[in-house]
Design a binder for these strands. Structure first.
Lengths: 205, 205, 205, 205
DNA sequence: AATGAATGAGTTTTCATTCAT
DNA sequence: TATGAATGAAAACTCATTCAT
């Protein structure tokens, strides 16, 4: 019956990916649907076959971006056992993922902008979830560390607070790194974590 | 010599201030020149007597914003002598200044976006300066603390690195606080600084 | 000979019917081919197998509509013998057919619009025929009435003129009734016909 | 203060007039704002300086049209004293006003369409008023005639009903005249009115 | 110097129509 | 024959900017 068999979900994803590239290059708001269509290599109208509106496309693209980071980082984390290493690796790889493709930073900022402005909206639930997810990952690392007597018991108790600070410093750092151009991201993160570890490392007798 | 010149600068400032209020309320991109003109109480054309373009007006308004924060914070800092107190106060007052008027966060994000995207541009020099300024303020506090034997000598040497992390965590925190809605900003900052102070406080015999 | 041909005409009719329902519900101009296709239960492309264009489909649907009214009314007329009753019934049932399903009025207006604007077009011949048909029906009623000495001889001679006025008043009335909302259609028609009958009724000795 | 003194109301009117011509030529729905702008001789954007939306422009143009008819007809009516003449003149001049500029009929139909579809809307109040106005004019003519013993007392009592029928037949007639092309408007109206007068004329002793 | 009327390029979105399957 | 994915022309509308006054 279907004359042309098209995997709609797949194409949707592809459009989202290409749109993401545009957003990263120029900013989501100022990227026009025409530009996206050209970038994807389809007609303007086709975009509306896959997304009800520009907003929906933006949100979807951001979700893709967030998924990608999460997946990549968590995959990399799998190979590391030591909680200290895990935490350090997590922080640095997130930061570098953003710095490596500097255009990506714009997407990250756009996500923040969306979450800050559209607090009533229901769509960006997936985006909000991303932060919760990240927070949880770090909290877990800290708690596990505490359980395994690598971090202090107190660190385990304060895991959530520490996790939030970790994430905040990482995000704050890449932002400033991108804005200023003279910040050594790795050095900053290591300095922070070295201090943190001195504070929360359990005394090994 | 001619009083006109003073007036021109003054009016420019006034327009910038009112525009800033609009930007905070609605976001710089979606605020139209008509809206600004109405808010300022002048004709649309008049805006172009004082600014070559909307972009110039936006940038100028952001500079005003940044100046205002800097000034306010530095004025408040004057009354505080203890470096530890000074640092804590600095961090918390910056964060709360943004959180108190949540719309302001949008301006802050816009500034970052501007700095990240327009790295070639020469206009946002003043904005870039802001971060340097802030960094310097904190660096100074730390160095002074080290000189007065309140912080370790090492803290004095690493003052710049610590300052960057301080700023980064503050900016990261208000962003996440605004985006997530369930973060106790003060608690997070205090937790970070308490840890920091344990690390850099000089042993008082 | 081939059964396909029968099917084709039948399906064409079915599509027209369903399209008509859409037009009545929403207006022909704003009803999209997609909507029609969905309502009919076929693919968008299929519509173009049966109609060269949307316009052709619209015209055809209107023809169906007109046929339906004609058929319904004439079927009902069959049971009535008295010319006065026939005329009254005709007028009222046409008017009420339109008022009962108010959306239908839009179709009627669209038909007028089509006829008024597209005077060059050859397609709406069937539509034009409808009015001629109606005129003839009423003319016949009047002439028969005159022959049977129920209406005056003069009425028989002026039958065409009277018929046109009859139709005009009926169409004018439902239009104003729909537009104004405070017109008692039946009362108006009866008032008109009562007057008419006083004028054209043959004196029964 | 005003750099360019423009009578906004006047220009609004002028735009409305030219738009009306477009609507008459092509139909309000299918006339694009670009076409109107070109016809008026201004830029697209200028239209939106005077009308918030296309809908507002359409409604306004129709109001102009209605006003024009009303004014013209009532001005002509002034010179006529005899109620019978007045009524006849009213009916014929309205009908001919529409027939004379056949394009105008499209506007009339569009007004009906608007009133029939948009019964919730508040804008076309002025349009609705037009029909009430016309009804009242005719009702008054009939009542005055009855008072002056030209029409029967009964005609005075039924004035409203008769007025509605009068208007309906006139509107129905020009519609059918335009649609069919073979109707003698004047003859039809005269035939109707001659009949009516026979019915409602007071017996002069 | 100040103004606001005028503008048109550019935006998002719709939809009749085509055509490969 | 039937389909629906793809399309691009066209629509309504916005707004930064210009310029005559």
């Amino acid at each position: 019956m279907s004359p042309k068999i098209v995997n709609k979900a797949e194409k949707r994803r592809e459009i989202g990916q290409r749109a993401l590239a545009c957003f990263a290059r120029e900013g989501a708001v100022v990227t026009s649907m025409s530009q996206i269509a050209r970038a994807v290599g389809v007609g303007k109208g086709t975009l509306y076959e896959y997304f009800r509106s520009k907003e929906e496309l933006i949100t979807y693209a951001m979700e893709l971006y967030v998924e990608a980071i999460e997946e990549q980082v968590s995959r990399m984390l799998d190979g590391i056992a030591d909680p200290k290493e895990r935490l350090r690796f997590y922080a640095i790889s997130v930061a570098e993922h953003i710095i490596d493709d500097p255009k990506t930073a714009g997407v990250m900022l756009a996500i923040f902008q969306l979450l800050i402005s559209d607090q009533s909206n229901n769509q960006p639930a997936a985006l909000k979830g991303m932060f919760r997810q990240a927070r949880q990952t770090i909290t877990s690392i800290l708690r596990e560390g505490a359980e395994n007597n690598i971090f202090t018991e107190k660190a385990g108790r304060e895991a959530e607070t520490i996790a939030i600070n970790c994430i905040a410093i990482v995000d704050g750092l890449w932002m400033h790194a991108m804005a200023s151009g003279d910040i050594d991201l790795k050095h900053q993160i290591n300095h922070y974590l070295d201090g943190l570890y001195r504070l929360i490392e359990a005394e090994t007798v």
